[in-house]
């Protein structure tokens, strides 16, 4: 069963660190100690799994972009469960604000790209980012004020 792998394991090894960071920021779980972010791990495992299922048909698509989109969609679908912060640095933001802020400022996407991923208008994404940034600045350490 090794032959059908064709680079997937290497892809996971190379991107898991960064994507797990993204997932943990989204679920607002603490990064440490190890194992404190079970929801983020589950989301990422599912996103990687979906990427593997499509691995041979990705053609010109960047697998990292595909995996990130899967992660985003899965988080957005489960967002209601992450309304309450769990101790991460973005705990005070709503799930949508977290998504917009992380995609915009951590992943470096444009407003329009974030809007397309989230199914919102670019103006709405800018508003979410503005509000998120304001909230973060009023409590920079992320702890409840």
């Amino acid at each position: 069963m090794v032959a059908e792998d064709s680079g997937f394991t290497a892809f996971v090894a190379g991107t898991a660190g960064r994507l797990l960071h993204v997932a943990t920021l989204l679920t607002s779980e603490p990064a440490l100690p190890p194992g404190a972010n079970p929801h983020a791990q589950r989301l990422l495992t599912a996103a990687f799994g979906a990427t593997y299922a499509r691995w041979d048909r990705l053609r010109d698509e960047d697998p990292y972009v595909y995996a990130r989109r899967e992660l985003t969609v899965r988080f957005a679908r489960a967002a209601r469960r992450f309304r309450r912060g769990r101790g991460g640095p973005l705990s005070r933001l709503t799930p949508r604000e977290r998504l917009a802020v992380v995609l915009r400022f951590h992943e470096g996407l444009y407003d329009e790209q974030v809007a397309a991923l989230m199914g919102l208008t670019a103006e709405r994404v800018r508003a979410l980012c503005r509000h998120g940034v304001g909230t973060l600045r009023s409590a920079p350490d992320g702890t409840a004020a």
Partner: peptide
């Protein structure tokens, strides 16, 4: 400042069995 906050946030260690779990899921 927010970019710095995100970049400076603690990075979660990747559990060693995550690739295997992802592969099984896939």
């Amino acid at each position: 400042e927010v970019r710095r906050l995100l970049a400076g946030a603690a990075r979660p260690p990747v559990p060693p069995d995550l690739p295997a779990r992802a592969l099984a899921h896939g």
